[in-house]
Every structure is written in structure tokens, then in C-alpha cells.
Amino acid sequence: MTVQQPLLEVKDLKKYFPVKTGILQRTTSHVKAVQNVSVEVKEGETLGIVGESGCGKSTFGRTILGLEDLTDGTIKFRGENIAGLSKRKLKPYKKDMQMIFQDPFASLNPRQRIGNALEEVFVIHSKMSKKEREQRVRELLVEVGLEEEHYDRYPHEFSGGQRQRIGIARAIALNPSLIVCDEAVSALDVSVQAQIIRLLMNLQKKYQLTYMFISHDLGVVRHMCDRVLVMYLGTMVELGTSDQIYKNPQHPYTKALLSAIPRPVPGRKKERIRLEGDLPSASNYPTGCPFHTRCPIAQEHCKTTVPEWREVETGHFVACHEV
């Protein structure tokens, strides 16, 4: 039996940002944004990445796509190690790996017509003529639910949902295999969120896309994702299928996140797990388990010993001493 190779393999990825102080701007410490993250993404699946703001999930996604230089680790795409490649050598892979940004307005040039903005990807990555580029962009606009006439409009003439559709059109323009959705619906109204999620799912089915879906909205993640990776302070704390994470969470941090999801049935009370204190600074990393400063079940050894990443059931992994 042939085992299918994962589309993306990330091993021990680290991303540190230097902290510079003084007149000479010497590096005195580092912000450890991502710490030893290892995960595989299968072709055609949607991997959700969740956690509080500041947990490193967006930095993780940006580092995979080469938007941030990694500090250490390996990133294999279709079996090829692309970690640390120069921009020139990474260019052929860029066509196959795209990103949908959280703020669609900030990712568009306000002085550039939408048609010209979308044509840029074909100027860089193809040899299409001007007429062919324009025709392809008009097709893309229709495919994401806009009109051909929108080609000549500027970003400020669109609503937030329409601008995100433009971002999606740009992401799928080169027929990529992997798309990183960085909080792609968090800035939108709930009704518009549903439309964009439906669009993403339809496009995934049509083009066999693979998604890394970064979000803090666990309700959306449950609806969208096949597997879920829970991150805390740049580290992995739990990984499993959507059913395993939502029906049988193991890590106390995962349980606290899930307890914060609003119940759809009014009047039915749900016990909320409230975490004490704030997220520690990534530049002053805690010893032992990074979650021990806020964990309701922490023991003395949690303060000194890093928990082992282990499998508690098939495909379900957790890093916790007390599980």
C-alpha cells in the first residue's frame, strides 16, 4: 500500500525576533514567537490553527510562506526542503503557496484599480499578454462572486466582504495547492462571514485546495477544519481531528478556549473556565510548561519540566504532564 506524501511537512520550526536596545542597537534578547512547531498537512485537507492573540499562529503561517525568515527548522513542500531558500529560488514555489490576509483593505493599494492589482500576479509569474491577463482577471472576479465591471474600480469603492473576495481572487489566480487563510473572516460581519466561508469551501472542492485556516473563532474552525492545532505562546499544546478536539479535549488550555464559545441555546448554562493572569511575554519565556503560570491544574514539576508531546489516541496529540 502506497502512503501518500504530505503536501506540507514542518519540522521543529522556530521563529525568533531580536530585541535591540541602546544607542548601538545591540541584540539583548529574543521574542520567541514560534517554538519547535512540527506538523504535516495532507493534500486537500483543512488544518485549523487556533489560540489567543499573540500565540504565534499568524507568524507561523507567514514563516511557512517565506514572508518571515525562519530562525531554525525545516519546511518541506511536496518533499522539497524550501526552508531558507533565497527569494529567487523560492519564486517557483510561490505560485503554489498563497495567502489570504486578515485585512483585505490594507493588502490592496488604494491608488491602484482592482483589475491592475490582480493582473500583477500574471505579470510576475506568467507570459500572458495584456488582453489575456485582463480576460483572466474578469473571470476571477465573477468566480468569487463579483462583477466584471468591478475591474476598473478602486479598493475604497468596495465593502469589507467584497474586498475579501478580491483577496481570495488574488490567492487562487495561479491555481495554488496551499492557501494560508490568516484570520480571513474575523474582520467581517457574521452574515458576510458565512458567505465567505461558503465561497472558500466551494473553491476547495472545485480546485482540490489545501487550507491552513488561522483563526481565534473556534465556532468557524469547527465548521471549516478537518484537523485542529492548538497553540499557546508559540508552542503546540494539542493536535487532533475536529471531533477529537471539540468532543474530547485533553489540554486544560484547549478546554478553556472551548468553554468560551457562546452556547446557541438561550437559558442553558455552561460552565466557563476562566484563566487567571495574562499571556506571558514571549521575550521572557517561562521555564517548564509554558502554560503553568495560568493552568488551573498545574503541579510543582510543571514549573521546571517541559511536557512531552505524546499521542493519547490515534491521531490525537497533547503536551501536558497531567493528561
Rank of each mutant, 00 (worst) to 15 (best):
E68V: 12
D69A: 15
D69P: 14
L70V: 13
T71V: 11
D72A: 15
D72K: 13
D72I: 03
G73S: 09
G73D: 09
G73F: 04
T74Q: 15
K76V: 12
K76L: 15
F77A: 12
F77M: 08
F77D: 12
R78V: 09
R78N: 15
R78D: 15
E80A: 15
E80C: 07
N81T: 11
I82V: 14
I82W: 06
I82E: 09
A83F: 07
L85R: 12
S86W: 01
K87W: 00
R88F: 04
R88I: 11
R88V: 13
L90P: 10
K91M: 10
K91R: 15
K91P: 05
P92M: 06
P92R: 02
Y93V: 11
Y93Q: 06
K94R: 15
K94W: 07
K94M: 12
K94L: 08
K95A: 05
Q98V: 05
Q98C: 06
Q98P: 08
Q98A: 07
Q98M: 03
I100R: 03
I100E: 02
F101P: 04
F101K: 06
F101S: 06
F101Q: 05
Q102E: 09
Q102P: 08
D103P: 02
D103M: 00
F105E: 09
F105P: 08
A106K: 09
S107Q: 02
L108C: 11
L108D: 07
L108V: 03
L108A: 11
N109S: 12
N109I: 05
N109H: 10
N109F: 03
N109P: 08
N109L: 04
P110L: 00
P110Y: 05
R111E: 07
R111F: 08
R113H: 06
I114F: 04
G115N: 06
G115W: 10
G115L: 06
N116E: 13
N116G: 03
A117L: 06
A117V: 07
E119T: 06
E120H: 01
V121K: 01
V121I: 12
V121R: 00
F122R: 02
F122A: 07
V123A: 04
I124G: 00
I124H: 00
H125S: 02
H125A: 02
H125T: 01
H125R: 03
K127P: 10
M128K: 14
M128R: 10
M128D: 09
S129M: 04
S129F: 02
K130H: 09
K130L: 08
K130S: 14
K131W: 04
E132N: 09
R133F: 01
R133V: 06
Q135N: 14
Q135W: 00
V137L: 01
R138D: 01
E139C: 04
E139F: 07
L140Y: 09
L140I: 03
L140P: 08
L141C: 08
V144E: 03
V144N: 05
G145F: 02
G145C: 04
